[in-house]
Design a protein around this nucleic acid. Structure first.
Length: 196
DNA sequence: GACCAGATTGTCT
DNA sequence: GACAATCTGGTCA
């Protein structure tokens, strides 16, 4: 197989919707201390920055969302509901606080390790949902702000011969504001997405 | 299968 | 003090 290439910072500097759609089908990998974990990105959501009421950065910069104001290609990992974490990748040029939320992966690498992280969970459910995939991959808040270009987290362009099905755009999940916008993207008819 | 309530803690008002 | 880009387990049909 051809050596997959790591997506560069210029990919993430594009507009957020382009990056969210472009990430579908890419490989997301984490060089976990106990081994490699990761899979194919099958579901994302776009958060557009200051003008998007659902975005954490809509009301200005804070200690929590500071990573989104930084350069693109960084991981933004935050805790939600006291017990879960969500993984984002910062987009757009530095100073524009936008990001793409990675909502679901198709598990491909380190499946045994991921099942150790999530006992009693079917393989199909390992990474089906933003908090689940963070837990399965073994990501922690310590990784907040690390580069996905040069750090232990990587996104590879594996250039799959054919994306299975087309890309569906629909509304975002779990938010109260801005939910009328079609900013959630997933691969049609993929069994690993978090919700139809 | 659909719907509902609880868990649990960092962050912001 | 209220809330949050969620998940799990319970109940009812």
């Amino acid at each position: 197989m051809v050596a997959p290439k790591v997506l560069g910072e210029e990919f993430y500097a594009q507009d957020t919707v382009t990056v969210a759609r472009g990430l579908l089908g890419k490989l997301f990998l984490y060089h976990h201390p106990a081994g490699l974990t990761g899979g194919r990105i099958v579901e994302t959501e776009a958060y557009l920055g200051a003008g998007d009421p659902a975005c954490h950065a809509a009301r200005g910069q804070t200690a929590r969302n500071a990573v989104m104001f930084g350069p693109p290609g960084r991981a933004y990992i935050y805790q939600i509901y006291g017990m879960y974490f969500c993984l984002n990748i910062v987009t757009e040029p530095e100073g524009i606080p936008a990001a793409v939320l990675v909502r679901a992966l198709e598990p491909l690498y380190g499946v045994e390790l991921m099942q150790q992280n999530c006992p009693r969970r079917e393989q199909r459910d390992l990474c089906r949902g933003p908090a689940r995939l963070v837990q399965a991959l073994g990501l922690t808040k310590e990784l907040n702000g690390v580069s996905v270009v040069t750090g232990p987290l990587r996104v590879l362009d594996d250039a799959p011969a054919a994306l299975p099905g087309e890309i569906i755009a629909t509304t975002r999940v779990g938010i109260n504001q801005g939910h009328e916008l079609p900013l959630r993207f997933y691969l049609a008819e993929n069994p690993y997405i978090s919700r139809k």
